[in-house]
Amino acid sequence: MLRVSNLEAVYQKMILALRGISLNVKEGQIVALLGSNGAGKSTTLKAISGLLAAEDGHITDGTIEFQGEIINNISPDQLVKKGIFLCMEGRRIFKDLTVEENLYAGAYTRKDRSSIKSDIEKIYEYFPKLKMLEHRKAGYLSGGEQQMLAIGRGLMAKPKLLLLDEPSLGIAPLLVKEIFENIKKINEEEGLTILVVEQNANIALSIAHYGYIIENGRVVMKGEASALLEDKNISEHYLGTGKDIKEGRSNRRRQRIVW
């Protein structure tokens, strides 16, 4: 469904953020994109969703192919209409809008106005907490509730491919679990294809089918999620379960994972 090949991207014409990333997302799958802070995860998602230009970034090489079409130079609103939706890092809900209005905002590009109301009810079934907060300004929600809203808002666009940028960021562990269970459920029930970026590799791989690990703008490892979870090397370096944390290298990586 999505094929990224040798993607290179720069910010401000000089900061090289991606150095030839290649990855594949098959229809109906959850794919995890893992890596430490600054590895280029968010940049990859921004490139796919056309949002690099708004941050003075450009794709300098490589291609992004979505359902057989090269989408390198397509504007963000066109991409949302084609079915790619990015839930940005840090939730980025509209603070001064109510929960309900945020969900309407997600449906902005849709033409079928009549079914929006019933789709909002469906979001409330996935995230019952949001129903109770329906008329509250989103800025007053807790971090976890805001993340649920951000994902719900994404679903309102009826995307074919949902990109999630660190849904666990700054959220209490218990809620993280609930949110990832919901992501899994949405994937299974709606057949929605999901590319999820995480620093919390354990939880992401627990729901993913396939995973990529990137570092310094390059893919350094890839494989079935279950295989990545079992790999000793990976668990030591990326999953924060390594025993040997006295060793400097491992220690440094652990610190980065803690964020």
């Binding site: 941050e55 609103d77 940005m88 980025r92 905002a105 902005y108």
Partner: peptide
């Protein structure tokens, strides 16, 4: 109105509004 909503969204968070497909 839909445009009114978009105007408030852009005022709130321009980047996020872009990611909704708002112009």
């Amino acid at each position: 109105s839909k445009i009114g909503l978009a105007m408030r969204a852009v005022a709130d968070d321009r980047q996020a509004a872009l990611s909704m497909g708002m112009s």
